[in-house]
Design a protein around this nucleic acid. Structure first.
Length: 1103
RNA sequence: GCGUCUUUAGCUCAGUGGUAGAGCGUUUGCAUGACACGCAAAAGGUCGGAGGUUCGAUCCCUCCAAGACGCACCA
């Protein structure tokens, strides 16, 4: 607090010479002004004064100004949730636009006396950040697929936290008056918790399903994308006409031929009616094939030959055709893998990339004579990744979808109802928009969003990346609910309760591994690489708090175990029965030699006992015996089990209930590879204990779609007696005591007294509610509290009620609580601020974000998330080009703010811009508003010079009679201010800015000031003419009543044509100008206001 | 194919049923009790085209043209 006052003092005028600086130095002022605002606490709406008069009265003696000032929340709320910028880079001009617009709204409504909350945050921005980070890794020669999940997550976490800090500083530089105490990150545990609750609710309502669908797969990023993340590009390609027996069809993708499962024609197409339902024989590249011909409406008889091949695995339309004809034709046959390469199903084409395979396949088809013709320059559009531009491969994948058009049902659970249970998410959205519950600026975006909603499709929310909120679903490894299957119910586990984790770890490398020798039970130690691998594994395991290590007693496992023990501190149990399969006579031989010599030996069979080897069955029996006995004893512990490739294979077979064939076809594990098994409650289906979590994370928009309510529901941690944060008591040395540490608990009544004034200023009951406020207390009504004469009496009272608990402090000068509760009317941020007033964001994320917030907001809370949507456009450069890093035309907002000032930048972004229109900005424009800032500065400078030059002008407390035209001029300024306010109310920011600009420059500066110059110059009457009023000057802090008194006295003075009245008129107009300009140019206006010394802070002046 | 928007001064854009505005730029003056990042003044537009409604249209309606964007399909 002292610091704050010092800061204010430093902002006042110190000398004439300072006043005489003809330029406003934004670099000097902006930092200290922001600090002044932030330190004042007024960004937090809970600290806002009820009315300006209550804090306008103050004395320099009152050092505890903010402690004694009544905080109140009886004010009407006004709230904006800041669109959380992506924490993967720094802010660009687009961000500066939202800062400008939202800050205008917040500052305006704060000045209008509303309880204005602007809640800031940052978005982890899943895929976007992953892409940015992947590029960073690429530069470093690394790649995300080789970094363990936890490590990668941690690295990206640090990366985003770093960026987040930079962004916060940037927001401060731009003058954002947001409440930092409520700042949120999309990966805050409390936010994740809410996201999980929504996920569970959707699941229980049957709106969430997991299904095999042909998804938009990016082979570069190796993840699926939602429909919105797909861009379409026009391409010229070849159209191939291929013979399928008697039929010929056209395709641009001959390489997918291997995945064909049928042919299709239009049912009305007479040319082909004789084939419908028949099987035709065709010559394929891998021999003869038979296809059934089906009839489907989706086939356009006019296209190509009117015949299509059905490739359900690699074409979304074909996938749908298959779904309609499931009984007649085979399902998806996957022939393209996640890397965009052809699979082993394609003979000699296996391993080729799609583009290459297309040419090679066409050539091969030509050779065998089934390629009839090729049409060049066939124009069509292809789906590409919006990030990397690579062609997307349609691949069937199990993914989580949200049903957008299905009505919720309650087959799975009965729970308390929120929202309209009968409507689909889409219909909830449509209704809110159509019934005008949500207002749109620009108005036409309403049509756009409705059009999108009406054509909406189910939303794929799974992303195959690490960075994000992991899907809280576990699959039992033993039964059909496992990930690769579509059957059974997975466990939705939003509490993420995992009893323990078991890790199967293969030993590190030995020389024999390296040489390719068969080891079996030969006791070969680790080599150097093996040691390093073990150390790597140990590091990875350490965070999991390993309780126990169970290891095969073979040297290579024992050594691996020792290394892991060193890192984790867990004890080791050695088990002979976990040894590798005994390979008999071939142990020690080179794998390749054995293969040459006994080609059939590798036809492993489960029962096989070649060359005196042990069979897999025998291995399985002995290993499982040890495993299950340890599991029954140590199932609740985190266990690392170190063993061998073959042994792991057999353990996995048992855990997953695999057939011998399936088990033997699992690829071998790498040295020191870790397999994680989560132990959860027994599977209801099969009694299995081992699970694995869904590896996918949520689409980032799934979490940000819940942002308005999630942020508000979790925004009270600093205010409540909840978990870590508890009511506090300060003693005279400003030491903090947490009441909880002194034995107070829920239900206790607490009374607070200010030792300085000896007044009891608060009384509360500690409750479990999350939010507290003292605002509801009526200080004048003594029935709300009981007074105690002193602290001893107070303490005795507590002692009496809670005999076992006494609060003691060695130097208790006063008690003060930041946080305590009134007994009634508990309100949370959610209740106060939801629905929020305005959602201001770019039109480019209308569907991604706004539409989803509307649907999820109503679905979860039953209420719309915001009353008004204001969409701004993209920021374009002066040639109307979209700014992008690759074009090199990006204006760095902080860079130009450095040069011209944040105020100038903000004005430039607002002026001449309407909702939904792209914003054209150039340095010229920003410079123009910098010039305006200088103008404002010089107007003030001129007035301040007049104030300083003569004691008679020094204060406005000396009231003199104003002339009729003085009054008219002031009234006009007020009228203009009203006009500006009306424009802001109507979201006409450009008109508001231009009105203020025009008035200040071309009326106030050019006309009024010029007009008044002669009067300022004129000699005043005698000192007596001013009466004794000058003596009542009190530095500009007179209370309204005192001012009224001064005014009465001054009515009698006779200065009306003189300099005092002239000065006072100009000052009054200047104040109006500062107010109307403050939302747009907050720094310079506040800086001038501080110098004028007419009140505490312009930011909280009443508009 | 479906949908949305735009077209006004050299540039960027406002705006209104009664024959047009701003900023920047341009031109010409000017040290005027703050400001040359300034002051004073000026030039510059048949408001994309055609038709219609109206006493009257840049504004409302229809069509056309050009451009931008979004969605869907594309074998």
């Amino acid at each position: 607090m002292k610091r704050l006052n010092r800061l204010r003092q430093s902002l006042k005028i110190k000398s004439m010479s300072e006043i005489l600086e003809p330029r406003y130095d934004h670099q000097k002022h902006e930092k200290e002004i922001y600090e002044l605002w932030e330190k004042s606490g007024y960004f937090n709406p809970d600290n806002l004064p009820t009315a300006s008069s209550e804090f306008g009265v103050r004395s320099s003696k009152n050092k505890k100004i903010s402690q004694t000032k009544p905080r109140t929340s009886n004010l009407e709320p006004f709230s904006i949730i800041m669109p959380p910028p992506n924490a993967n880079g720094s802010l660009h001009l687009g961000h500066a636009v939202f800062v400008a617009l939202q800050d205008i709204l917040i500052r305006f409504w704060r000045m209008r006396g509303k309880k204005a909350l602007w809640l800031p945050g940052a978005d982890h921005a899943g895929f976007e950040t992953q892409v940015v980070f992947d590029k960073k890794l690429e530069k470093e020669g690394r790649n995300r697929f080789t970094i363990p999940r936890e490590e990668l997550f941690k690295e990206i976490w640090d990366f985003t936290q770093h960026n987040k800090k930079i962004m916060e500083e940037q927001l401060r530089k731009l003058g954002a008056s947001c409440d930092w105490s409520r700042e949120k990150f999309t990966l805050d545990p409390a936010i994740i918790r809410i996201v999980y609750e929504t996920f569970e609710k959707l699941y229980k309502d049957g709106l969430l399903y997991r299904d095999l669908r042909v998804v938009n797969w990016c082979p570069k990023h190796k993840t699926a994308l939602s429909d919105l993340e797909v861009k379409h590009e026009e391409r010229l390609d070849q159209l191939y006409y291929i013979k399928y027996g008697p039929l010929t069809l056209a395709t641009v993708r001959p390489e997918t031929k291997f995945g064909d499962t049928a042919l299709a024609v239009n049912p009305k197409d007479k040319r082909y009616s004789k084939y419908i339902g028949k099987e035709i024989r065709a010559l394929g590249l891998l021999g003869k094939l038979t296809f059934k011909v089906i009839a489907d409406e989706a086939v356009d008889p006019k296209f190509g030959t009117g015949v299509i091949k059905v490739t359900p695995a690699h074409d979304p339309a074909d996938f749908e055709i298959w779904q309609r004809h499931k009984k007649e034709i085979p399902g998806p046959k996957i022939i393209i893998d996640e890397n965009g390469r052809l699979t082993g199903e394609t003979g000699k084409f296996a391993g080729m990339k799609v583009a290459e395979a297309r040419i090679k396949v066409a050539e091969a088809m030509k050779e065998i004579g089934i390629l009839e013709k090729v049409e060049n320059d066939y124009k069509h559009s292809v789906a590409v990744c919006y990030k990397c531009g690579n062609v997307l491969e349609p691949i069937p994948k199990m993914q989580w979808f949200i049903a957008m058009t299905a009505k919720p049902h309650q087959s799975r659970d009965r729970r308390p109802e929120t929202g309209d249970r009968k409507k689909s998410l889409r219909d909830l959205g449509i209704e809110a928009v159509e019934k005008k519950k949500i207002k749109f600026y620009p108005a036409h975006s309403k049509k756009v969003i409705l059009h999108w909603l009406k054509n909406i499709r189910d939303w794929n929310i799974s992303r195959q990346i690490v960075w994000g909120i992991r899907i809280p679903v576990w699959y039992c490894l033993a039964c059909s609910a496992r990930p690769e299957s579509n059957r059974g119910e997975p466990k939705i586990n939003i509490n993420q309760e995992v009893k323990s984790r078991w890790f199967l770890v293969r030993h590190g490398e030995t020389d024999w591994n390296k040489e390719g020798r068969i080891m079996g039970q030969s006791d070969i130690p680790l080599n150097k690489t093996g040691m390093a691998q073990a150390e790597e594994a140990a590091r990875e395991l350490k965070p999991h708090k390993v309780d126990l290590i169970i290891s095969s007693d073979s040297a290579r496992c024992r050594q691996t175990a020792e290394i892991i023990k060193k890192e984790t501190g867990a004890e080791i149990i050695l088990e002979k029965k976990l040894r590798e399969r005994h390979h008999g006579d071939i142990e020690g031989l080179l794998r390749k030699d054995v293969f040459e010599q006994y080609p059939r030996i590798y036809e492993y069979s489960y029962e096989g006992k070649y060359m005196n080897a042990e069979s897999y069955r025998e291995l399985e029996e002995r290993a499982w015996e040890v495993f299950s006995s340890h599991h029954s004893r140590h199932g609740h512990k985190n266990v690392v089990l170190i063993t061998h490739g073959g042994t792991i294979r057999m353990l996995i077979k048992r855990i997953k209930n695999l057939t011998p064939e399936a088990a033997l076809s699992i690829p071998s594990r790498k040295n020191a590879e870790i397999i994680q098994l989560d132990v959860l409650d027994k599977c209801e289906n099969c009694g299995g204990h081992f699970y694995e979590q869904d590896p996918d994370v949520f689409d980032t928009w799934f979490s940000s779609g819940q942002w308005p309510f999630a942020t508000l529901m979790t925004s009270d941690k600093k205010m409540g007696f909840h978990e870590e944060v508890v009511p506090q008591v300060l003693d005279g040395k400003t030491k903090t005591y947490r009441l909880r540490d002194h034995g107070f608990k829920v239900g206790d009544k607490v009374l607070f007294e200010n030792s300085a004034t000896k007044k009891i200023f608060g009384y509360g009951i500690i409750t479990e509610a999350k939010k507290t406020t003292i605002d509801k207390i009526d200080y004048t009504d003594k029935s709300h509290y009981k007074t105690y004469k002193n602290l001893d009496e107070l303490m005795t009272a507590f002692k009496h009620k809670n005999p076992e608990k006494t609060f003691t402090s060695k130097s208790p000068a006063y008690l003060y609580a930041y946080d305590f509760y009134p007994a009634k009317n508990l309100e949370t941020d959610f209740e106060t601020f939801y629905p929020t007033d305005v959602m201001e964001t770019g039109y480019d994320i209308l569907f991604f974000w706004v539409a989803r917030m509307v649907m999820l907001g109503i679905y979860t809370t039953g209420k719309i998330p915001f009353r008004t949507v204001y969409l701004h456009g993209l920021v374009l450069d002066k040639d109307k080009k979209k700014m992008s890093k690759s074009k090199g035309n990006v204006i760095d907002p902080l860079g130009v703010a450095e040069i011209y000032g944040s105020d100038a930048l903000r004005m430039a972004l607002v002026a001449g811009n309407t909702a939904g229109k792209d914003i054209v900005i150039s340095e010229d424009k920003i410079r123009g508003y910098r010039n305006f800032a200088t103008k404002v500065w010089n107007i003030s400078r001129f007035i301040l010079m007049n104030k300083m030059k003569d004691i008679r002008h020094q204060t406005s407390d000396i009231r003199v009679k104003l002339t009729a035209s003085d009054k008219k001029n002031i009234a006009e300024a007020e009228k203009i201010k009203d006009k500006v306010g009306k424009h802001i109310e109507k979201f006409e920011f450009h008109l508001a800015a231009e009105t203020a600009y025009h008035y200040i420059w071309h009326t106030f500066a050019d006309k009024i000031i010029e007009e008044y110059k002669p009067r300022l110059k004129a000699e005043t009457g005698s000192e007596e003419a001013l009466g004794g009023a000058a003596s009542s000057a009190s530095g500009g802090f007179a209370a309204p009543r005192a001012q009224a008194g001064a005014r009465r006295r001054s009515e009698r003075t006779a200065d009306s044509e003189g300099p005092v009245a002239a000065y006072q008129t100009l000052e009054a107009i200047l104040l109006e100008c500062l107010k109307m300009l403050h939302p747009f140019m907050p720094f310079i206006t506040e800086a001038i206001f501080q110098k004028l010394n007419k009140g505490e802070m312009l930011m909280i002046e009443r508009w």
